[in-house]
Simulated assay, not measured.
Amino acid sequence: MNRPRYQLGTLYSEPRKSGPDVWVYRWRETDEQGRRTLRKQIVGTVRELRTQADAQRAAETLRLSVNRYTIDHGGSVVTVHKLVEHYRMKEMPMDTHEGKTRATKLVYQNCLKLYIVPRWGDYPLRRVTSVEVEDWLKTLKLAASTRTKIRNLMSTIFRHAIRWGFLGQQENPIALVRVKAGRKRVPDTLTGEEFRALMAVLPDRERVMGGICATTGLRVCEVLGLKWEDIDFVRKTANVLRSYVSGSIGPCKTEVSQQPVPLDAITLQRLIAWRGLCAFGADTDWIFASERLFGKLPVWPDILRSRILQPAAKRAGITKHIGWHTFRHTYSSLLAATGSDVKVVQELMRHAKVSTTMEVYTHAGMDKKRVAQSKAVDVLFNRTPQQT
């Protein structure tokens, strides 16, 4: 089969009737029958790409797509950096439609910017080897889970190269890279006494936030994504519909996460009390709205953790490493310790995969979840079972 000849293409600016001028990339394609066709595509506006050098860099990604069949026949050499830019242009827009959360996209971007491109950007694709990548990952002073994410993202990028014909079907060097996925340390959890001591020294807002995390297992991003209208005070449930990550409202981590969770009587009482104290108590308001932002967005969890939660833990005499996720780990461990059914624990924690807890295929009802939840709350608040 005749391959299309390599096309260098030309780049120039072109005026438009309305709006700023645009940079246009033009090239000719030769099909298998030898016919020549003129093609062009807008690379970006002159406002986005202020110099021709900027436009040339942006056009390089497009040039890769145009010449993807010619890289083994005297065409351009594809480096990891060029491949990453091609992946960003072709795959990143699709991520929006495939359910990837904002947090996942930020992790991808950070891994590319901080680790993958600085280390491997200038390497031709076939110069990257499994052993070299594996040895490099071992030198990174990162959590095992983060090293695993970097490895998986590199594998995704190389699969992208195979899909587009930059590499052969069996040329993914990352497929043979081994990474230990175990934790460096076991996450800390709180005892009932430690939890009560911490609650006693926290301000009202943070006390309610921590209480929700510890009695429902919600992630802090999901707690901050709650509005007052999401709380059903009659049915004693919370509808988890969204999350707040890095200053942006988005979907929850998984579809399983978007399920109603039961609310214990103590948690409901504290929510009612907080609604009477907070500045934003309308149904459409965020439960933990930022006063500095006039209620338009929830508060920022990282600032609360470093300035309020962790100092409060020290005042309470707690030496463990404390964060908002500590409450979720505490809830999970208490559910297991109180002898709850594995399937109930899985659904209360809203794990996406059954394997996260155990391979159980029965459905747990809301009443059974509430009983298990109340047992955990009994321990946290030193409450006798008769009070449930």
Rank of each mutant, 00 (worst) to 15 (best):
Pro260Asn: 08
Phe327Cys: 09
Ser257Leu: 11
Lys184Ser: 09
Glu291Thr: 12
Leu49Gly: 01
Leu62Trp: 10
Glu32Phe: 00
Asp31Gly: 10
Arg196Val: 00
Ser243Leu: 08
Thr284Cys: 11
Glu171Ile: 05
Arg57Glu: 14
Arg178Asp: 13
Ala289Asp: 04
Thr384Val: 10
Arg205Lys: 15
Leu142Asp: 01
Leu224Lys: 03
Phe158Arg: 00
Ile174Leu: 12
Asp188Gly: 06
Ala372Arg: 07
Pro173Tyr: 05
Trp164Leu: 13
Met358Pro: 01
Glu134Met: 13
Glu48Ser: 07
Gly165Ser: 09
Val360Gln: 12
Thr267Ser: 15
Asn172Cys: 11
Val354Ala: 15
Gln373Asn: 12
Arg292Ser: 12
Val107His: 11
Val344Trp: 06
Gln170Gly: 02
Pro298Tyr: 00
Met366Asp: 09
Glu60Pro: 00
Val223Met: 01
Leu112Lys: 04
Lys149Gly: 02
Phe233Val: 04
Trp274Phe: 09
Ile174Tyr: 06
Ala200Tyr: 05
Ala289Glu: 04
Ile266Arg: 10
Arg36Glu: 15
Val377Pro: 05
Leu335Asn: 08
Trp27Asn: 07
Trp300Gln: 15
Arg219Thr: 00
Thr139Ile: 02
Lys184Asn: 13
Val179His: 06
Glu347Cys: 04
Cys252Met: 03
Glu48Leu: 03
Gln346Ser: 13
Leu11Ile: 02
Trp286Glu: 09
Asp204Tyr: 02
Arg242Ala: 06
Ser257Thr: 06
Lys184Leu: 14
Arg350Ala: 05
Val131Phe: 12
Asp204Asn: 11
Arg305Val: 00
His160Phe: 13
Gly74Thr: 02
Asp31Met: 10
Val245Trp: 11
Val128His: 05
Lys40Asn: 13
Leu226Asn: 09
Leu334Met: 13
Met358Tyr: 04
Arg350Lys: 12
Val240Asp: 02
Lys236Ser: 14
Pro385Leu: 08
Thr104Gly: 05
Thr10Met: 11
Gln7Phe: 01
Ser130Pro: 05
Gln109Thr: 06
Leu167Pro: 05
Leu277Gly: 03
Tyr108His: 13
Gly295Ile: 08
His86Met: 11
Ser248Asp: 10
Leu241Val: 11
Arg16Asn: 07
Leu83Lys: 07
Val133Ser: 05
Gln109Ala: 14
Lys369Phe: 03
Val360Arg: 10
Val371Lys: 13
Gly250Leu: 11
Ala372Asp: 07
Arg185Phe: 08
Leu140Glu: 07
Asp341Glu: 15
Ile249Met: 15
Glu194Gln: 07
Ser130Glu: 06
Arg305Trp: 01
Val377Tyr: 02
Ala273Pro: 06
Gln109Ile: 02
Arg147Ala: 08
Ile249Arg: 13
Val371Phe: 08
Ser290Leu: 12
Ser145Met: 10
Asp21Glu: 14
Val354Asn: 13
Pro118Asp: 06
Ala161Asn: 04
Val234Ser: 14
Ala279Cys: 09
Val133Asn: 04
Ala214Ile: 09
Met366Cys: 03
Arg35Leu: 13
Gly168Asn: 13
Leu297Glu: 12
